[in-house]
Design a protein around this nucleic acid. Structure first.
Lengths: 329, 329
DNA sequence: TATGGCTATGATACCGGTTACAAGGTTGCA
DNA sequence: TGCAACCTTGTAACCGGTATCATAGCCATA
């Protein structure tokens, strides 16, 4: 009788014994059912079911040399820009028959290196990181393992990994120039921490040489945006526009401006960067520079698939950013 | 000489040959370095470095029987409630030495079943799904593979998988009752699609038996919330409060109310469910029922770790929801 | 009847690690 | 000197699949 209620899991040999056929035939039933006799197939299937046989992924991938897993390292899932990216990445990777394992770093390069090692340990075939600032340990790991690695959210032609991303500096410059065309002179730039965040750093750097611009650093949260506005209204009441280096900050700022009955854009213009879903819908709708996180996810997935499938190292890829003029500026 | 620039990747035997020691010794250097002679260890390490040797995760896990990977199936990453959950889940799983592979289903049970199969194929040790509505294929897969599976975002004592989640019906009842205590009679309930979304369904069902309540179904987006408000203001101008079955809808509604210069809460009260980060910060701050997605992630990670590590099937776990009274109602 | 070409299946080497067991070389102590 | 205990290291079996090659059985054609 079939031992339906057995304890340990069955393997191919168990199924072979149970069905009376050979391991080769069982393997064929699993992989190329068409070439096995229908009667045989039925019998083997019955044994498979009876034994609750589940083929071992490890044993399979030891032969194929493939795990079909790629790892992504992102600072956080709390910021919608990364969720958007990961959502697209996962969808497209899935279409390529690849699975996505995500690891969050909290923006800490050491954690990134450590989690990257974890991804190597589970057999990831490729890595995807955010930005271009990484710890020496991370770079060493990639060099040592020769792991296909793509850096995203940033474009840099000659970077040591292929980059797929946008021109962060250009995006903030685009926003600033738009404010200028609207006649704004005294502008506050609201940004999150730039340490260990090269995207933010690049956006901020592009704005550094200009006069009449006040930089204000705050936490990268809605609340951070709000607090910054409170402080700014007190310390620099002459500003007429706020350039937020992330839509998260812009939305937080917008809330605080409402709270303080400051009219947007009549009394204060507001512009962001990212184009999160909420920005289009907010009141007033937030003018912003769109970073195509979704497209970036798709392109990254395609590039990774090409790399692991055809061993084709992808070209760096610059994705255009677009100024989306809405109501807030 | 060491062939540093070789094409194919090296394996343990290559390292053994290169270093002049046996595979067993090389393996020891990798796993229990302390028990091998320092000189030997150095030599083996040198060979490892020279050959760019990276141990195969597949070969390892074929012996240990473990992949250290768990899979999570979520409807989407676009809703912050899932990002929040996944963020916590990943962090805690990582602390347990487990990696998280995420798969999005778009809320489609068939896709869920298909992606679950994908997770099995890559050797996931456990599964985590949202809600209690799944396709027969999914249930069959879990039954067949005997995969440790936890259902989240929902609590149901006697469900076929252990559940870790909250009382969705109770949450919406809590919100409704709060509106009643505030004297509201004519209330609109704003909800997303309930097909294939049992959380939403449960929240809505809890409200069905009452009079003076208008249900309005819309898309589960910010825009959806806004559009619903527009329609509602026209078709049911007598309502004094809107109960949104998700904070996403509440925020969208809030934007639209602002746009239409409807004062919150003076002319229209607004209450949500979720407690997304934006709700606390919005203007006016949105009163809501907090669903502890973060805590749910932690508890789920712990439960999964217990299950795969000690084979302990977790008890169902109800997580309390809390009414957070802020400004909007 | 012999030969060729199929189809269906089996035996077994192999992938790249881990690990049980064996064994050689020291060292320690009676 | 004799033998045990220990420290290192090696040999080979094993994990659970895949894939190659061999072979048995069958039908068709010459």
């Amino acid at each position: 009788m079939t031992d339906t209620g057995s304890k340990k899991k069955a393997n191919l040999r168990d199924v072979a014994r149970e069905s009376g056929f050979s391991v080769a035939t069982v393997s064929r039933v699993l992989n190329t059912p068409d070439i096995v006799n229908a009667t045989t197939r039925k019998a083997v299937q019955a044994a498979i079911d009876a034994l609750h046989f589940v083929p071992s992924a490890a044993a399979r991938s030891i032969n194929s040399g493939r795990s079909h897993v790629v790892g992504a390292l992102v600072p956080t899932l709390d910021n919608a820009i990364f969720s958007k990216f990961l959502g697209a990445l996962e969808a497209k990777l899935s279409a390529h028959g690849l699975s996505l394992v995500v690891a969050t770093t909290g923006g800490d390069p050491d954690v990134e290196a450590q989690k990257a090692q974890g991804l190597v340990d589970i057999g990831a075939e490729a890595l995807c990181v955010s930005g271009v600032t990484h710890s020496p340990e991370f770079d060493h790991l990639v060099a040592r393992t020769r792991m296909p690695t793509i850096a995203t959210s940033f474009y840099q032609e000659d970077y040591r990994y292929p980059t797929i991303g946008y021109d962060n500096a250009g995006a903030s410059r685009k926003a600033l120039e738009f404010l200028w065309t609207k006649g704004h002179i005294h502008i506050a730039v609201l940004h999150g921490p730039t340490e260990q965040n090269d995207r933010m750093h690049a956006r901020l750097s592009a704005l550094q040489e200009h006069e009449n611009i006040i930089n204000f650093k705050t936490e990268m949260t809605f609340a951070g945006g709000g607090e910054a506005v409170s402080a700014l209204l007190r310390s620099a009441p002459h500003i007429t526009a706020i350039l937020c280096l992330s839509d998260v900050l812009a939305l937080g700022a917008s809330f605080e401006l409402h709270r303080r009955k400051v009219q947007i854009p009549d009394q204060m213009s507001l512009i962001g960067i990212d184009d999160l879903p909420s920005s289009a819908c907010a009141f007033p709708a937030i003018t912003t520079v769109r970073l195509p996180a979704h497209e970036m996810g798709i392109l990254t997935a395609d590039a990774i698939a090409q790399w692991v499938e055809q061993d084709a190292v992808p070209e760096p890829r610059l994705i255009d950013t677009t100024l989306i003029i809405r109501e807030s500026a």
